[in-house]
Design a protein around this nucleic acid. Structure first.
Lengths: 209, 209
DNA sequence: CAAGGCTGTTCTCCAAATGTTCTCTTACAG
DNA sequence: CTGTAAGAGAACATTTGGAGAACAGCCTTG
């Protein structure tokens, strides 16, 4: 059982070690988490040592060691530390600053619970008709089972009981069903409602390089 | 027998724990279920403790523990059935045929083990400079910690010790480091090697709609 | 060697946040 | 009308967060 500030401290130390390869000084932690007292940091560290997250080589400079607790089985299984935002466009502030400034934000990504597993399935995508939505050939999409959907939703649809496709759904004025790709080079395909069976609605995607 | 409000409270707590890995505060629960009184929440919690759904480490902040009672048993933990391939381009054979026809293929997607969690972290992407690689604004990217990378790899890099960015790495003939976006509208940025610190290498991405 | 300066440690004091216990009010079903 | 539950909110107790002083050990520097 660790408190909010202790969690923040642990998160900062992990980021710091990941970045520099060695442990931070107490003063660095303090400014990193937005306080000014080394003594307070030391109190947090003692609590983290007590809780089994850290090891402290007493007195030594940068004498902190990370332990594996909290990353492997036991608590947040499948948890990956979520460090904050990053700019794919322009560089922005460093990760730790972002994280330090945010409180109450999610600071761990737990893939085990990230997607609901109830009535959910996954399929690998072939082709690039959804490329403009950031879904590439080979990606895995996460789909929630459903037998109907609203206009605008991206669905997995079974056509004529034989063929399955991933497209954005639109109902036309004429009462037909339009399955629209997200690729300017391709055209929408239009069917009578009876030929299209919704299998599920797109809720996420996963990709591994 | 628990009341509707108590059920709502329990449901909120479960979701919160699933997402953050620790218990919510009473105030968070209150706003979460749409009321404003911590006292009322406390009353519900006492009822839930009495009914055996929760445990309360009295007085401690975030001192709630979930018990197993009432949980849907048999949840495939982290497992999502992986059904086969789907055509984002043209419709192909039905999913069930695919699945039935393939043997020896992976037929379950376990997000818990899909990405290694060792030396791995995740960051949320801001901006759309990697859009041509299918990484959109708001996506979460999975990164393996590393302090060096080869030409062509996509890296998280720290520039001048202050700014973090996600780009494709290239070494120029002149011995400089080029960080290239995957967006034709943007230009590569070129730095002297000393200014760029590699933080990690892109190994995956996750998106939730 | 002596004098600082930096770092980790320990301590006290105080403020803010949080959990707990009340009372009061309102709505509603029987 | 009565009993029950939901909800607001005040009052209190405890935990948590934070500042900063004082001290000890290590290192550098003169």
């Amino acid at each position: 059982m660790i408190s909010d500030s202790q969690r923040k401290t642990l998160s900062f130390i992990r980021q710091y070690v990941a970045r520099y390869g060695y442990a931070p000084k107490l003063q660095e932690i303090a400014t990193g988490i937005g306080i000014s007292s080394r003594g307070v940091v030391h109190r947090y560290i003692q609590a983290l040592v007590q809780a089994g997250y850290l090891e402290n080589l007493g007195g030594k400079h940068r004498g902190l060691r990370l332990l594996d607790k909290g990353r492997e089985s036991g608590q947040a299984v499948g948890g990956i530390p979520l460090l904050g935002k990053i700019a794919a466009g322009r560089p922005i502030e460093a990760i730790c600053d972002q994280n330090g400034g945010q409180h109450g934000e999610q600071n761990e990504l737990n893939l085990q619970t990230f997607f609901s597993t109830i009535n959910t399935f996954a399929v690998r995508v072939e082709g690039d008709s959804m490329i403009e939505m950031g879904i590439l050939d080979g990606d895995i999409v996460i789909v929630k089972s459903a037998d109907s959907a609203k206009s605008g939703e991206v669905v997995v649809a079974l056509i004529d009981g034989e063929e399955v496709t991933l497209k954005r759904l639109e109902y036309t004025k004429e009462g037909l069903v339009s399955l629209m790709p997200a690729n300017k080079k391709m055209q929408a395909m239009i069917y009578e409602p009876g030929r299209v069976h919704i299998q599920g609605i797109l809720i996420g995607s996963v990709r591994k390089y």
